[in-house]
């Protein structure tokens, strides 16, 4: 599903952020990515949707090396991914429904199909009744659930979450994690970056630990 082979990433201003990272994530697996702030978690996640490209090494997704994927194919790669952000990144001038519909509109689904899938996704995160609300009228936990619905609505093959519970209190965090586990139980592959070790320890999942740009555990 996903494989990093000796991947390094160097920025001209902050030096090497990732050094020689290698790991494999299998289809249907759920894994955590941990480490202190600045350990390179976000950078690692950015290499998969090609927000950044590695300096050295190879990233393989769905059996294809993606380092040198031409720019015009990047959108198609991203449509196979579901991204979840710490700050939700919802569009405040659109309703919950329209926010979740975005990946489907991008992929070119018709209106009927879009409506059906959006409602299915909202149902899964328990927000079906709030589809007409605007994101700012929702609580933080609800906003993140909208973000999650948006990440799963197009049935991506891999979900990447970058500190999805970073802005939430422990109860809500646990709720969100439970949701992820539910998805995983029906076969969704997830890679979740989080520094909340306490929360992670409650799940019997594989944990990749980054320290100063190197993978020290779980490879």
């Amino acid at each position: 599903m996903l494989q990093f082979i000796n991947v390094s990433k160097r920025y001209s201003d902050s030096g090497e952020v990732l050094s020689n990272v290698s790991f494999r994530l299998e289809q249907g697996e759920m894994a955590f990515l941990t480490g202190h702030s600045g350990a390179g978690k976000s950078t690692m996640l950015k290499l998969i949707p090609l927000i950044e490209r590695p300096t050295r090494g190879q990233v393989v997704f769905d059996g294809r090396p993606i380092n040198h994927l031409p720019k015009r194919q990047v959108p198609h790669l991203r449509r196979k991914l579901g991204l979840i952000f710490q700050d939700y990144r919802l569009l405040h001038d659109r309703t919950v429904f329209d926010n979740v519909a975005l990946p489907l509109q991008i992929a070119g689904y018709g209106q009927q199909e879009t409506a059906r899938r959006v409602r299915a996704a909202l149902d899964k995160v328990g927000l079906l009744r709030k589809e007409k609300r605007y994101p700012l009228a929702l609580s933080g936990g609800e906003q993140q659930r909208v973000g999650i619905a948006r990440a799963i609505v197009h049935k991506p093959s891999l979900i990447l979450a970058d500190e999805p519970t970073g802005n939430l209190d422990p109860d809500l965090s646990a709720e969100i994690m439970a949701l992820f586990r539910e998805f995983n139980q029906v076969g969704v592959t997830l890679l979740i970056a989080s520094h909340n070790l306490d929360l992670i320890s409650r799940f019997a999942c594989r944990t990749l630990k980054l320290h100063q740009g190197q993978l020290v555990e779980g490879d």
């Binding site: 949707p49 991914l81 975005l102």
Partner: peptide, 16 residues
């Protein structure tokens, strides 16, 4: 700006 950035992350083509 934010809308465009998010749409790009979701796999929007330049055309879209």
């Amino acid at each position: 700006h934010e809308e465009i950035a998010v749409a790009k992350l979701m796999g929007a083509t330049d055309r879209f």
